[in-house]
Amino acid sequence: MNKLEKFYNILIVGVGGQGVITLGKFFQEYAFYQPKIIKFAAIESRGVSQREGSVFASIRYLVSNNSPKNNYENKDGDLDDKSIFFSGNPPKGQIHLMIALEFFEFLRNANYCHPQGIVLLNLQQIFPKSAVKQKIEISQETNSYLQQIRDALPNLRIISQNYSEMLNKQIKKSSNGHLNSYMLSQLLDVNISLFPAHILKEAFNNFFS
């Protein structure tokens, strides 16, 4: 890897049926919109859609810090997939952006967060039906867990809301909506250099149109 290149790792976590995989696909497409992204590798868990299992989508960008090379202008928009190999598996402690669509899945995966990373966290809790008996003790500890995460990673930026409730209010007022695209739209306000608003908006509109 050239010194002017580095990884930018994204991990989306949630529960089957919340739209994790679709969000993962959005970030795969985004690689074509952001000229700084040279290549990506992605992997996702499958088979528990609608079934309340843990789901993740991992997207790893290889990013150039050099003068941006617009992939659209390069050989019909090809991203080169032949010269560099790397795994789509999320590396622990190296996730720069985590989108957690469910609270417990964030706790389960917090050890993947980069110390200076960003987390967009939905505070909604969907407790596993298979472990309902443990619910009381775990729920009582949730604030303590969150504090332990803040202690361990003081520079981790956690942007948290109950986005599910906010979305439900919005649905009641106007039209349909999905948690994944709703949370993604919140990223516009987060100010991440790899996701400038104009590129993010263009990719968002094209993907969800």
């Binding site: 089957g16 299992g53 843990s54 389960r108 596993p128 039906k129 298979s130 500890e141 867990y145």
Partner: peptide, 12 residues
């Protein structure tokens, strides 16, 4: 913390 969160066994 990760080890404390129960496995989310898929259901119907």
């Amino acid at each position: 913390i990760a080890s404390q969160i129960p496995v989310r066994e898929p259901t119907f």
